[in-house]
């Protein structure tokens, strides 16, 4: 069992009191195995970056963490993912509530074709988090403020969200995720569709959000991983190759493949 020995050798799964953990996670789409024995801990109130070449399984792993893969036909998942020590794949877990606790921001900004206000208000409304219009207003304002968008949109909350620029739309999506007060926010290449200025704004935002939320971000940009994350995990061919402090991964990688990837020799 070469696979097992390799992951045991390179990955450093255990940290003290992790927010989320993955243990021996295997996932396949039909006959196509996409993840092999992934063991990873996510530290609370830190940014964990998942890096690796295209098709290495980092997005798939991210989508396992709020069970978004459930919606795809023919997926089989083995292993365990926990949130605060509870298995999220347990039959007694309510998926809808789970996804409220673990928010997600997608690669392409995907605001609802509604007003800016309704976009942010949607989550609190469906979960019944508010009792009055004032409370809802309060949540919308706070969320937009946290996403650094309030200044730009406060005069046009009732105009369509699709009229915003790409970067603004992505920050709106972050505001929308923040509005339901999640504990963890998963971000799947949130800046890949944005220009450098919008990217800088989102990165700044991620850094601020870290004080309140646990963030896991998938990124193709190693500079971005270096800039925003405290821990970095390197995936290759469906396996978690190496995980550690971001500084250590970028300056002193233990695995040859990690070294090859971050120095740009392949990927």
């Amino acid at each position: 069992m070469a696979v097992v020995s390799q992951s045991a050798m390179t990955a450093q799964p255990s940290v003290a009191s992790p927010k989320m953990t993955a243990r021996d996670l295997n996932l396949s789409y039909g006959d196509n195995q996409a993840l092999f024995d992934v063991n990873l801990d996510i530290v609370e109130r830190q940014v964990t970056a998942l890096i690796g070449p295209s098709g290495c399984g980092k997005s798939t792993f991210l989508r396992c963490m709020n069970r978004m893969n459930d919606t795809i036909d023919g997926v089989t998942i083995k292993g365990e993912v926990t949130l605060d020590g509870r298995d999220i794949y347990d039959k007694r877990i309510d998926v809808v509530q789970l996804r409220a606790r673990i928010g997600m921001v997608f690669q392409k900004p995907n605001p609802f074709p509604k007003t800016i206000y309704d976009n942010v208000a949607y989550g609190p409304r469906i979960h019944g988090l508010v009792n009055s219009r004032d409370e809802l207003d309060q949540i919308v304002m706070t969320s937009l403020e946290r996403a650094g968008l309030l200044k730009e949109v406060k005069d046009r909350l009732q105009s369509p969200a699709t009229g915003l620029s790409g970067g603004q739309q992505q920050r709106l999506c972050i505001a929308r995720a923040v509005a339901v007060s999640p504990e963890v926010i998963l971000m799947d290449e949130p800046c890949s569709a944005l220009d450098p200025i919008a990217t800088a704004k989102v990165e700044e935002l991620i850094d601020e959000l870290r004080s309140n939320y646990t963030i896991v971000i998938v990124t193709h940009s190693m500079q971005q991983a270096a800039r925003v994350s405290q821990r970095t995990a390197f995936f290759h061919l469906g396996k978690l190759v190496e995980v550690g402090e971001t500084d250590q991964i970028f300056t002193n990688p233990k695995d040859e493949r990690t070294k090859g990837y971050i120095t740009g020799r392949f990927g």
Partner: peptide, 9 residues
């Protein structure tokens, strides 16, 4: 759009 909604719970 579906993912956005599902992702929000």
């Amino acid at each position: 759009i579906r993912q956005a909604a599902l992702g929000l719970g």
